[in-house]
């Protein structure tokens, strides 16, 4: 039978994206302690730490635009959003409808899904003018 200490030890291989080198990192997690090997610089350690404990991504997608010159409004999160809630984010964004006009940088959703992060418009879309 394995001892509990060994069971709590976790290995993970990661490719560092902190810079274009793309180092392969070997991360070993034991309790709260994470040891990282294989990086050519210090940034790899921070990258692995974040990727293991709290992976996040800036989310971008589009939502429905009403009365605008275009049918879809591109949006993004202002900060990186928890990776394990990407699906929730996408599902939530299908419910969002925005009326024209909207300006690049406007807040579309504040504190999205309670994560303390806002969703902003990334393009200016004017009202659709009725045909003359």
């Amino acid at each position: 039978m394995k001892s509990p200490e060994i069971q709590s030890r976790e290995y993970r291989q990661l490719i560092c994206t902190a810079c274009p080198m793309g180092c392969t990192l070997e991360a070993e997690k034991e309790g709260d302690l994470i040891q990282v090997k294989g990086g050519r610089c210090q940034r790899g350690g921070k990258y692995a730490q974040d990727e293991i404990t709290n992976p996040r991504r800036v989310m971008t997608t589009t939502c429905v635009m009403e009365g605008g010159e275009l049918r879809r409004l591109p949006i993004r999160t202002t900060q990186p959003f928890p990776k394990n809630r990407m699906d929730d984010f996408m599902t939530f964004m299908t419910t969002v409808r925005v009326s024209a006009p909207v300006f690049c940088g406007d807040i579309i959703v504040s504190n999205v899904l309670g994560e303390g992060i806002d969703v902003i418009a990334t393009r200016t879309i004017r009202k659709k003018q009725p045909a003359p």
Binding site: P74, C104, R123, T124
Partner: peptide, 8 residues
């Protein structure tokens, strides 16, 4: 930035 923001 995203592409549309860069353009903006």
């Amino acid at each position: 930035l995203t592409g549309p923001e860069y353009a903006s």
